[in-house]
Design a protein around this nucleic acid. Sequence first.
DNA 1: TATTTATCGATATCAAAATATCGATAAATA
DNA 2: TATTTATCGATATTTTGATATCGATAAATA
Lengths: 235, 235
Amino acid sequence: METNSWANKTFNETKASSESLLKELRLPTIRRFPKYLRVLWDLSSLGRDFVSSDKIANELNIDPITVRKDLAFTGVIGKPRIGYSIPLLINGIEQLIQSNGQTNILLIGAGNLGRALLGYGGLEKHGYNIVAAFDSDLNKVGTTIHNKQVYNIEQLTEITEKVNIEIGVLCIPEDVAQKTATFLVKAGIKAIWNFTNTELKVPEHVTVLSEDLASSLAVLSVNMKRNSNKKAKEE
Amino acid sequence: METNSWANKTFNETKASSESLLKELRLPTIRRFPKYLRVLWDLSSLGRDFVSSDKIANELNIDPITVRKDLAFTGVIGKPRIGYSIPLLINGIEQLIQSNGQTNILLIGAGNLGRALLGYGGLEKHGYNIVAAFDSDLNKVGTTIHNKQVYNIEQLTEITEKVNIEIGVLCIPEDVAQKTATFLVKAGIKAIWNFTNTELKVPEHVTVLSEDLASSLAVLSVNMKRNSNKKAKEE
DNA sequence: TATTTATCGATATCAAAATATCGATAAATA
DNA sequence: TATTTATCGATATTTTGATATCGATAAATA
Ligand SMILES: NC(=O)c1ccc[n+]([C@@H]2O[C@H](COP(=O)([O-])OP(=O)(O)OC[C@H]3O[C@@H](n4cnc5c(N)ncnc54)[C@H](O)[C@@H]3O)[C@@H](O)[C@H]2O)c1
Ligand SMILES: NC(=O)c1ccc[n+]([C@@H]2O[C@H](COP(=O)([O-])OP(=O)(O)OC[C@H]3O[C@@H](n4cnc5c(N)ncnc54)[C@H](O)[C@@H]3O)[C@@H](O)[C@H]2O)c1
């Protein structure tokens, strides 16, 4: 066995196995990666070069063991008493969770929610770029919202033919959700970020992720009840 | 042992133990409850009285065993070959996840996201009522957005003194998030629904739930990558 | 230079969640 | 009325995720 077990993996080895690492990644880990990134960005902008798992864990209120296990997927080797190289971690995480550099998005439905997302800077920071918006309402077509052009939904394929689009965001009424999803699939979109409360039926090669604010509120409600029960018992 | 093991629990027994049931509820189960509700509401509006776990599972693309286990928490007893009573299930789930009938919410920050939430009907359906909005921008104060009045943040306690408010929604810039959260806690709010990417520090008796769109996008990205890897291998 | 200590990472344990198995049952059907 | 069958719910198994333990190590300190 190797005597120096600490740094016996080369950078190339870890890169080579990136596909299998991707397979091993678990959902909770993936969810935490953007949180790590935000902490790392902050520290980096403060001029720091290294960070310990304890520091990250404290910032995010999670267990340092969890942090170390998650970070292991990046292939970055931490140093005792020093921690991890911040730039390497940032790079490693971005490699794992980003499709490739910048991801192009089309937004369908420039209504209440759509407008909010068009104005949300948080997506760009993480490498997502909303290329354009689409709406069926002719009053909206031709206008600009937060510097993004609103097109007629019929013009969508014109754009997907020119620009490589990966994700379509559905911010439209429920009753047209399935129809529109099918249309997006035909236009060659690879993934759908679904804000409607419809269970979409799409071919296997298309990835769907649905948001559900009601689920969040349910969790909040139950936690709140538990908290007040606890409080009541203490008194 | 009882011979008729099928319906040997009375309604009152299940009600009496509701507090301990609450304790046993797991997060994934809570998350699924609103989804069950939507399916049940739909079926109910179609005039149906009973539904099987298989039917619900199919609608939501989950396992029927999971559905049965989740529904067991409501105390509703299903009948072989018939399924569960839809009205009883609706009632049972609502009992478990709602604080008490209607939950009052205050929204802080009537910007892009705040406006969208003010116009979102989905919350009311699930028993949540946004009572009013608050903003520091005097141009917004005094206006009405989606029939909700926008107040100056300083007027917040006036309202919390009159109406029982349980939840505050934070849709404000990050740099004022902690300050505002602390203010909400002082005003007696029990829970914070946090849309900023700040880890809030609040007293133990206050419940926080944070949304993170970047986490969702990370999951979407990774799933998309996996899907295309899979596709590539098949070819 | 020797010792101390913060930190990592491997391995082990514990807890939670998903999935499988199967007998019980009551409605439907023969 | 007897048989078949859809469905439930209890229990068991497997998988996943969180947490604990601890030796290895290299920087800091004595
Ligand atoms: N508003 C929120 O905060 C919020 C939050 C979570 C989820 N949602 C969900 O997002 C969806 C949109 O909500 P909203 O509040 O923005 O509604 P909205 O009515 O304000 O916006 C819907 C937009 O979609 C457009 N549209 C309708 N049919 C279309 C079609 N076939 N093709 C393209 N565009 C079309 C409309 O013209 C409109 O501009 C809904 O399904 C809602 O449940 C909204
Ligand atoms: N826009 C989105 O789709 C979106 C999505 C997810 C999360 N978020 C987060 O939600 C928050 C708000 O985003 P936004 O896009 O709506 O920003 P925004 O700038 O459009 O809105 C912020 C609003 O908060 C008000 N405000 C500022 N300081 C305040 C204070 N001290 N008290 C009360 N009100 C105050 C501002 O006047 C403004 O109206 C941000 O933290 C953002 O990261 C936004």
